[in-house]
């Protein structure tokens, strides 16, 4: 691969991650509740007093959280200078914590309620998971596919439930769809582009137009001929094998929705294979993943894919076979 390009893309990804991080953490910053609080307000009255309990397995004594022993007194800070100092040291600490958060998109320095997560942290997490689940079960708007002029086809899968349980059926076109591509699609094209929702309809909705138009344009500029593009509902990556057998293109590219993560539920992948056929080994497929606005931006991805295609055409191989030929 072009090292400079990879470096550039990685840099872009990191920059994006950091910007997203800053926005999300600034909300926490504005919150009065500091993530790490030095003390909780001690409860007064009606204390349920736990007794110290012995644990047989270790020599540790478990002391109850609310003990009947005297609690350390919490002094209220009354002097103005002390308050100012406390505010200053808190601000400094928050700055340090912010520095840590900026290092990673992971959900670190989130504070705690006892041993549990804070309420807003927990709900944010649940929301991100909800978005990921909804992306799996969402629908691709058909006006988008019509606008792009994609023929709309189906795999052998009847619904999302079956898609999830039967990966084998997602790797084959329905009989009707086979008849359609035999009738309507150009054969032996240099590059056959296929789109599929895969595990994220959202990925298609958010990225397909930009990736596809930029990819198609870049191929045209390079003088590479493309076939008749179509969309397959509920397809899997290895669907390209059957398409390769029927249409006999040199290269099949399948643009497919990835399994959603919590950071992004709209990530798209492009799988590419030179002369795929039933029985193609996985190692001969190549993938450009993480295509979304927080990862590899879709327009750039389209242009990059065209350079990958040129290389595959030059060596007449993809994946591990390409690496071998390149030496």
């Amino acid at each position: 691969m072009n090292e400079q390009l990879v470096e550039q893309i990685t840099k872009m990804v990191i920059e994006k991650l950091q910007t997203t991080k800053t926005t999300s953490t600034s909300q926490i910053k504005n919150n009065d509740e500091m993530p790490v609080k030095l003390f909780q307000n001690a409860p007064t009255g009606n204390l349920v007093v736990e007794k110290e309990t012995a644990n047989t397995g270790t020599d540790v004594k478990f002391v109850p959280i609310v003990s009947d022993k005297k609690q350390p007194e919490i002094k209220s800070v009354t002097k103005k200078t002390a308050t100012e100092e406390l505010t200053k040291s808190r601000a400094k600490k928050e700055e340090v914590l912010e520095g840590l958060r900026k290092q990673t998109p992971a959900r670190i320095v989130v504070g705690r309620a006892g041993t549990r997560a804070k309420t807003d942290t927990w709900l944010k997490f649940r929301f991100d998971h909800a978005a990921a689940v909804d992306a799996v079960y969402g629908e691709v708007p058909s006006e988008l596919l019509e606008r792009l002029g994609f023929i709309q086809l189906h795999s052998k899968v009847v619904d999302k439930e079956e898609y999830i349980r039967r990966p084998d059926l997602g790797r084959r076109l329905s009989d009707q769809s086979i008849a359609t591509i035999k009738e309507k699609c150009k054969r032996s094209a240099t590059v056959q582009i296929v789109a599929s929702n895969g595990l994220s309809a959202k990925a298609i909705e958010e990225n397909m137009e930009d990736v596809y138009l930029s990819f198609e344009q870049s191929l045209k500029n390079a003088g590479i001929e493309t076939g008749t593009t179509f969309y397959v509902e509920n397809g899997r990556v290895a669907l390209m094998d059957e398409i390769g057998e029927i249409l006999q293109p040199d290269i099949v590219v399948i643009l497919i929705g990835e399994r959603p993560g919590l950071v992004s539920a709209e990530s798209l992948s492009a799988y590419i294979c030179y002369k795929p056929h039933l029985g193609t080994i996985e190692a001969d497929r190549m993938v450009v993943s993480n295509i979304h606005k927080g990862g590899i931006p879709p327009v750039e991805a389209g242009a990059y894919l065209a350079t990958v295609i040129q290389k595959i055409l030059k060596y007449e191989a993809s994946g591990v076979s390409l690496v071998k030929k390149e030496g």
Partner: peptide, 20 residues
């Protein structure tokens, strides 16, 4: 952290969960 693995894109137990 919070059970969210930002590299493997799946969820596991959180630091809080283990302590709990």
């Amino acid at each position: 952290p919070m059970g969210d693995d930002v590299m493997l894109n799946y969820q596991s137990m959180s630091f809080h969960d283990v302590a709990t």
